[in-house]
Design a protein around this nucleic acid. Sequence first.
DNA 1: GAATAATCGGAGCACTGCTCCATTTTGTCA
DNA 2: TGACAAAATGGAGCAGTGCTCCGATTATTC
Lengths: 207, 207
Amino acid sequence: MRVDARKNYDRLLAVAGEVFADEGADASLRDIARKAGVGLGTLYRHFPTREALLETLLRASFEALAERAKVLESSDSADEALVAWMQETTEFTYRQRGIIALMMGAIEDTNSALHDSCVMLRAAGTALLTRAQAEGKARDDLSGAELFDLIAALAWLREQPSHAARADHLFTLIADAILTDSSGAHSGAGSEPGTTAPTETVPPPAG
Amino acid sequence: MRVDARKNYDRLLAVAGEVFADEGADASLRDIARKAGVGLGTLYRHFPTREALLETLLRASFEALAERAKVLESSDSADEALVAWMQETTEFTYRQRGIIALMMGAIEDTNSALHDSCVMLRAAGTALLTRAQAEGKARDDLSGAELFDLIAALAWLREQPSHAARADHLFTLIADAILTDSSGAHSGAGSEPGTTAPTETVPPPAG
DNA sequence: GAATAATCGGAGCACTGCTCCATTTTGTCA
DNA sequence: TGACAAAATGGAGCAGTGCTCCGATTATTC
């Protein structure tokens, strides 16, 4: 890549990261180009779709979430691992305002730039779910796709301002619904989003 | 109202009903005006916001859902009544594609034309929930607002094409999570959206 | 039939996503 | 160093959006 192209590419990513953070995933691309001091054509040359831009920005985070699932797979408690990963994934996803709707569309659209990331994320969750099910800690009649749906629904809910105050409670309710009664989850230690996972496990998006 | 104004008003409502049904709640207002054979200014004169137009179209249905809750309140089974109403409300809401997002914004925006309808709907659900709780059929740590959130989340999920096949199953999962174990809901009779409420209880939107 | 008030409808503004291509810049090779 | 081809640029242009504004038109009243 030519050095001037590289410079513009980097500038676009940096600015896009800020603008998306400020205004959500439906921010104006023209605005991003303008703030990057670059023509609109240049933006489209580097990132042919909005999703391509978002994918480049968020790929590292998606991969970190998948990696995190791998680590959690070797933890002691299969149910706590599952809930912790659900919590982290929900948290990350809802913070990228507007992205969960794109992801739900991308997961069955093989042409979408976000497709692979979504499939990877779903697979990572499925592995944790399957392990919990094998240990009798999670209900058997739940698929990885359904787990993904539940996380998406929770993330969408958190994007709604009117819901904010109740977010943790509903997360716990749904987490408990996934776990089997015998896993003793109702006491809450493994399913309180506010109290678990105080450490930063997913890096912020690049830029 | 002048007769020409009345004629345009009615035409707009009729056309808007069709267009919103075809394209969802974010359909082009200019397109609606054009198809109604009316100027854009005329549309905005009658319906100053998109939400005002939707509210006029859907008010009767919202009121029917509230009325339905009242009827269900005097049914034998408090838990079955709650789940049936959840099912009908979710069904109605998701069929009006795109409206659930507007409703979530409207419920705490007193200026929105949809505000009153949303508050009314939430209150109707709260009454059913409270009754079920009083009878020990629903978990106590759930508020009417949270019930509304769960219905919204389910309706949003159903709007996602990738989710369609799993809609009924997740509805059942969440319905069961709301009911207490003692209510015997896990056997399913009261929480199978596909099998309950075969009768049409909510009229289609006007127009 | 004339006066008046209500209503109409589309031009116009600022914005969006996206395409296209004349112009400019860069890297290479003699 | 200078010439040249390839790569990259950036913004004009198109079709669409929500929404406002106001001169022209129409219905109603006297």
